[in-house]
């Protein structure tokens, strides 16, 4: 799965803001942002990755266990799907 074209992530004053740069991507009444961990996963998803790879990356980078990483990746991906930010 991968971040859909037309979305970019920018860090502004410690806030990770998702910006829609195409007419289809633009959501006029919402500001979407991520925490630091979410931004970490977003950057992996920009290149494309599946759930196991995302969970493994979380474990390498952060102090967390496999079960927590897998569960949180699931929840996070559902959040992104809910806003139609990812393909796959």
């Amino acid at each position: 799965m991968k971040i859909k074209p037309g979305y970019i992530l920018r860090e502004v004053m410690d806030i990770f803001v998702i910006i829609g740069v195409g007419s289809e991507a633009y959501s006029p009444n919402e500001i979407l942002s991520l925490n630091e961990t979410g931004a970490f996963l977003w950057r992996i998803l920009e290149k494309g990755a599946e759930k196991p790879e995302l969970a493994a990356a979380l474990q390498r980078e952060y102090d967390t266990d496999p079960q927590t990483a897998e569960r949180d990746v699931d929840v996070f991906l559902e959040m992104l799907r809910g806003k139609a930010l990812i393909d796959g």
Partner: peptide, 19 residues
Amino acid sequence: MKKYEAPELFVDTFAADTM
């Protein structure tokens, strides 16, 4: 190894006429 915080997506909604 960084301190872990669950990844989150924040959605702030505002009225169109605030812009």
